[in-house]
Design a protein around this nucleic acid. Structure first.
Lengths: 213, 213
DNA sequence: TCGACTATTGAACAGGTGATCAACAGGTGC
DNA sequence: GCACCTGTTGATCACCTGTTCAATAGTCGA
């Protein structure tokens, strides 16, 4: 009932099925305990097989870590981006997006990201995947932002660098949350973050909850 | 001429001197290769002594890592804060500060920070030190920012949350730099970052324009 | 039913980690 | 010059890591 959550799998599975089982187990493990917890033996225990079998399906652990990273963050990105609500304007959607990314419930993915930057220093395969995923985030955000700027009167604001700043800010806050260093009101911070990035006066939203001063 | 940069130390040293030698070696090693490289044997090799001697002076490695972290980032903070130039106004000083923090030359300290967040998940002693250092940064920045806001017309901007955002943004960019994901012009980004945090129109040069909505 | 194919295992390897401790040896005081 | 004190070492422990490979055993087709 702890780490060995999955019962020992049936003795012999078709390769595709076993492979999926191992990859899924690794993804679940990384979500729970971070990318650093992805050891051959830990994955094997999680899935209920021998370390040698994990090594059989994923011979190079470094590459496996990179693969798991991509699977996790790509899924998250798809999910977050897909939660776009056409009924709302772009600015409201952006705010929702930031709130989602800063949500405590996403601390598992935050841990994966932070560890990916640290591990990327010595795992170049991982670093390349990290850059690719960040490019995708940057592109997606830039698109949303330039749309939001067009809605409001955001002339003179560079959407690309806004996206860059937004990513940096969200990622920085994620990193901080790993050591539990966070401000009291994350929602207020999300609004302030958006305002800062879109370079508008702090209180645009007519403040249903005044941010304070 | 490589990692064993220091010649083997004289056979027997007074404890304070030996201790300092070991701590200094560990700090140098962490700067070069990150906190994760701080192993008993690596530090010993760096200083030119036996692993057992390192363990003798620092019996618990986890605590030693936390200590080295504090030494490195506290020194950096002191240095950066001390480079305040009274001849310039506060905003200019803030800009210089951001530029300094984003400078490539500080990638070593950036690596220490990012690894500290990742390691802090499992090293609570380290996490506590990290929070303490971040508090000090936050306080120092908040002071500078509130001063800058008083100089210019920064009414309505909350200095505390500005400091928070600035830290997040700088830290996020540091994390990104570890996997070499960075924009071309860091100086321009520093200006844009400052403008965003102080909540002023994006292009202070071009559009001193009215902040609309 | 039996053979072939192959998924899976157990065991071992070489290398890494932090930590411990009896024994050695340099320096100082007598 | 000798003895004590203690800084320092070498060896060893238990445990971790990824990787390899011969041997086992499940399953399917003939």
């Amino acid at each position: 009932m702890n780490t060995t959550s999955r019962a020992a799998a049936p003795r012999r599975l078709p390769p595709e099925q076993r492979e999926r089982s191992i990859v899924d187990g690794a993804i679940a493990l990384a979500r729970e305990s971070g990318l650093e917890a992805l050891t051959l033996r830990a994955v094997a225990a999680k899935v209920g097989v021998t370390p040698a079998l994990v090594a059989h399906y994923r011979p190079v652990m470094e590459a496996f870590v990179a693969e798991v990273f991509t699977a996790i963050v790509a899924a998250e990105r798809d999910e977050v981006i897909a939660s776009y609500d056409p009924a709302l304007d772009l600015r409201a959607n952006l705010l929702r997006l930031i709130e989602t990314l800063l949500d405590d419930a996403r601390d598992d993915v935050a841990m994966v990201w932070v560890q990916s930057w640290a591990l990327g220093v010595r795992n170049e395969a991982l670093a390349a995947r990290v850059r690719a995923e960040m490019d995708l985030w940057q592109t997606a955000l830039e698109e949303l932002i330039s749309g939001a700027l067009a809605e409001t009167s955001g002339a003179g604001v560079d959407a690309a660098s806004s996206a860059w700043m937004l990513l940096a800010m969200v990622d920085g806050m994620s990193a901080h949350s790993l050591v539990r260093w966070a401000p009291r009101d994350r929602a207020a911070l999300a609004r302030r973050t958006l305002a800062a990035v879109l370079d508008v006066s702090a209180e645009t939203t007519a403040a249903p909850a005044g941010i304070d001063r």
